[in-house]
């Protein structure tokens, strides 16, 4: 399953939001990856997420594959759209 999302918070994917996203993604069994401009990295890793340097309004894809993919995509999309306010 692929999700197309956009960063909405002003600071972009800084340490704090990256940490929140990685932590949430790690709660799921599914394999979850993030894809931006040809780079594909683990969305369960704070370092990988940060190193993409995503800024406000930048688009990215989450690729989710596994038994709880439906649930994961719903919750992660909500998290991104709510500007990482858990």
């Amino acid at each position: 399953m692929e999700l197309l999302l956009k960063i909405k918070n002003a600071e972009g994917l800084h340490a704090r939001p990256a940490g929140i996203l990685a932590k949430k993604a790690a709660e799921f069994q599914s394999n979850i990856q993030i894809s931006v401009g040809g780079q594909v990295k683990s969305a369960k890793s704070i370092m990988a997420l940060m190193s993409l340097g995503l800024k406000k309004d930048q688009e990215f894809k989450l690729i989710i594959d596994g038994p709880d993919a439906d649930n994961a995509s719903r919750i992660l999309a909500e998290l991104v759209n709510n500007e990482f306010k858990a």
């Binding site: 340490a15 704090r16 940490g19 683990s42 369960k44 890793s45 704070i46």
Partner: peptide
């Protein structure tokens, strides 16, 4: 405190 929480996650990160 969030910045230190991020530090904690960094050293717990599988990538490292």
């Amino acid at each position: 405190a969030a910045i230190f929480e991020a530090h904690l996650m960094m050293i717990q990160d599988e990538e490292i």
